[in-house]
């Protein structure tokens, strides 16, 4: 899903960088020292995720996992993905360097959307709601990122609905895989270390022994 160099026009690239700077400034506020190891590990997972290829029909797609980043890090998902995208562009040539801003907004926006969907679970009390909402978050992250991709490509003269349809169709397998992976991960973490997931309180406040 990473956009390559030379496709988007100057104003769109600039808008991408401005958007990234603004959102990063908002989401980096009051970052705790304690959060940093968690951000570090999840950024590493996101960074490596793009290397996992899944053959789909005539082409192949790769994992994105921005849904997982949103579910675990909450608001801090955006700076984490920003770091991951920068390193992917520089070290892997994955996505153009001039497009880093736009790619950050695309994937970071998806992660924040996933966080939003994930937080909706507080309104429900279901069995294994973490798995369900984790899966929904994973799928919606890909969906929202696809929408942002289509929006960005509109400026190159493509029709939005046509692009959106094509982006969706191409990424449905990814959406399904992401939903499965994030749902499973969220369920697993909810069982062993629930306080790691975004929107859950830390054990110190609950009086439980931190195992």
């Amino acid at each position: 899903m990473h956009i390559s160099d030379g496709i988007l026009s100057g104003p769109v690239l600039a808008a991408g960088f401005v958007g990234t700077a603004v959102i990063a400034g908002l989401t980096l506020r009051n970052m705790d020292m304690e959060e940093i190891p968690k951000v570090s590990v999840i950024t590493a997972v996101f960074f490596v995720a793009s290397l996992i290829h899944v053959p789909v029909g005539p082409s192949s797609v790769h994992l994105i996992l921005n849904g997982l980043v949103g579910v675990v890090l909450g608001w801090r998902a955006f700076p984490a993905i920003m770091l991951g995208v920068i390193l992917q562009a520089i070290l892997f040539g994955h996505g153009g360097v001039s497009v880093i801003g736009a790619n950050c907004v695309m994937l970071g926006g998806g992660a924040l959307a996933a966080y939003g969907v994930w937080q909706l679970r507080h309104w429900f009390s279901l069995e294994r709601k973490e798995v369900i909402f984790g899966a929904l978050a994973g799928g919606s992250a890909t969906l929202v990122s696809g929408m942002v991709l289509s929006l960005a490509l509109v400026t190159t003269g493509e029709q939005f609905l046509v692009m959106a349809g094509a982006a969706l169709a191409a990424h449905i397998p990814v959406m399904i895989i992401e939903a499965v992976v994030v749902g499973a991960a969220a369920g697993f973490l909810a069982k062993v270390r629930p306080h790691i997931l975004a929107g859950n309180t830390a054990p110190a406040l609950l009086g439980r022994p931190s195992a």
């Binding site: 970052m31 020292m33 940093i36 190891p37 951000v39 570090s40 950024t43 590493a44 960074f47 490596v48 290397l51 770091l83 991951g84 390193l87 992917q88 070290l91 892997f92 040539g93």
Partner: peptide, 27 residues
């Protein structure tokens, strides 16, 4: 275009390093 293990490890190192600097500045 091939990216080997060294690129991956390099990237992971970057992540840990940048966040480590961030943590140091915070402290």
């Amino acid at each position: 275009e091939r990216r080997g293990l060294s690129d991956i490890i390099g990237g992971l190192g970057f992540i840990i390093g940048i966040l480590g600097v961030f943590a140091y500045l915070k402290s």
